[in-house]
Amino acid sequence: MARAVSTRRKVAVSIIAWAIGLIIFFPILWTFLTSFKTEGTAIAVPPKFLFFDWTLENYFTVQERSDYFRHFSNSIISAVGSTIVGLIIAVPAAWAMAFSPTKRTKDVLMWMLSTKMLPAVGVLVPIYLLFRDFRLLDTHIGLIIVLTMINLPIIVWMLFTYFKEIPNDILEAARMDGAGLREEILYVLTPMAVPGIASTLLLNIILAWNEAFWTLNLTTTAAAPLTAFIASYSSPEGLFWAKLSAASTLAIAPILIMGWFSQKQLVRGLTFGAVK
């Protein structure tokens, strides 16, 4: 009896869960489908779901028109580069905040949060001028710098919360055994914090990959990543939807594949360590 009830409940939960998943996933599915339509089929009324002549034409047009692969490699360079630089700065900083805290630690955290209080447009002009004067506009280095800066507060914050969970005694024991500071961080702290660091790394790659405001304003052609590629398909009305869909699918595919493989890490990473 109890078993029947629980089976019925399980089925109900499955149905609800799949329904929610489908509703949330639908816009992406629809974009994906549209990318294989001709522009004419794309605006058919009523809309066509699966039964139309599938074509790959849009993908070829998109690659020809705006060189997907160049934007793709720019995205990879800036996302990976900024993540590496970010971690190099953030790991020692988070170590200092977690294991050698002062009264100021809280103020630093609040200050980091304040970077999320100012609208990006408000600081665009000062940063743009700085970039122009240092000849960083439209360069990979410039893009890596700005992406690192923007995401640094969140990386430090995440690492700080992870590091705080690691008992100080273990580090102290290592120290007693004669480990220097470098060994302590590289060989004791880092291996223990690998899950946390991995989540931080993933999250940062996604954030850097999706950053649009700064990449659009600070790059033009040479270093423009995929967000700029998408923005170039900005024809406001009609006739262009299938190509826009193809471009969108191409732009999000890499992140979807990465997210798929690292879903569990991400869920952990997203908690900012607030959950132990």
Partner: peptide, 17 residues
């Protein structure tokens, strides 16, 4: 994984879609 996706794609793409 399907539910995580909307968050992981750039706003500029989802707004267009």
């Amino acid at each position: 994984a399907a539910i995580l996706i909307p968050w992981a794609i750039p706003t500029i793409v989802s707004a267009r879609m």
